[in-house]
C-alpha cells in the first residue's frame, strides 16, 4: 500500500473526500483486507479519542489563578482596571459620544434662543442704572417688564394677546 493510498484511506474516514472518490475507497476496502484492517485501526483510535478526551482542571485555586490574570491586566491597562467601567473604548462609547451629542444639542438650543429672544442691553452706567426702564422680553410677547433700580423694584405685566382678548387687562406682578 502506498503512502498516498494510506492517506486517502484516512481522508475517507475523516469525510474529506469527494463523493465519487469516497465510493472508490469504500469499494477498495471491501476487496482488500489490508486496507480494511488499517481503516479499522484508524477508526478505533479516532473513536477512543473522541469518547475519552481527558478532563483536566486548573491545579490552582480560583483566587490564586485569577490573581495573576488580574495583576497582569492592571499592569498593562492601569487606568481602565483601576476604574471599572472606564476602559477607553467603552468610555468613548458609553459616555463621551452621548456627552458630545448632548453638548451639541445645548449649543443649538442656545443659538435658537439667542436668535428668537434677544434681550435689550442692560444698563451699563450708574446713570442708566438709576433710570427706570420698560422692556418687552419677546418680540410678540404680552409680558411687559418695568424695572426701577433706584426703588429696587421690578414689575411684570402679563396680558393675553389682543386677538384672543379684546379687553386688555394687564395684571402687574411684583417680583421684587
Amino acid at each position: 500500500m502506498t503512502q498516498e493510498q494510506q492517506l486517502k484511506l484516512q481522508a475517507f474516514l475523516d469525510g474529506e473526500l469527494a463523493e465519487s472518490e469516497a465510493r472508490e475507497i469504500l469499494a477498495w476496502t471491501q476487496r482488500d483486507g489490508a486496507a480494511a484492517a488499517l481503516l479499522s485501526e484508524l477508526k478505533n483510535t479516532r473513536q477512543a479519542m473522541v469518547q475519552a478526551e481527558p478532563h483536566l482542571g486548573v491545579p490552582e485555586t480560583r483566587e490564586f489563578f485569577w490573581s495573576k490574570i488580574e495583576r497582569e491586566i492592571r499592569r498593562q491597562e492601569p487606568a481602565a482596571a483601576a476604574a471599572p467601567g472606564a476602559s477607553r473604548p467603552a468610555m468613548l462609547r458609553d459616555w463621551l459620544l452621548p456627552a458630545v451629542a448632548a453638548g451639541a444639542l445645548v449649543l443649538v438650543a442656545a443659538g435658537l434662543l439667542v436668535h428668537f429672544n434677544v434681550p435689550k442691553p442692560a444698563p451699563e452706567t450708574a446713570a442708566d442704572a438709576d433710570t427706570p426702564t420698560v422692556e418687552t422680553t419677546l418680540a410678540n410677547s404680552d409680558a411687559t417688564t418695568y424695572r426701577d433700580a433706584s426703588e429696587g423694584t421690578t414689575l411684570v405685566w402679563f396680558s393675553p394677546a389682543a386677538d384672543d382678548n379684546p379687553a386688555p387687562n394687564k395684571k402687574p406682578t411684583a417680583i421684587n
Binding site: V58, R62, F65, E70, I73, A80, A81, P84, G85, A86
Partner: peptide
C-alpha cells in the same frame, strides 16, 4: 466586561478556566 467590569470577567474566567 467590555464596559470594564473586571468582576464580570473574573466570573467568565471561573466558568471556563478548566
Amino acid at each position: 466586561a467590555r464596559r470594564g467590569e473586571l468582576a464580570a470577567f473574573e466570573e467568565l474566567v471561573f466558568r471556563h478556566r478548566d
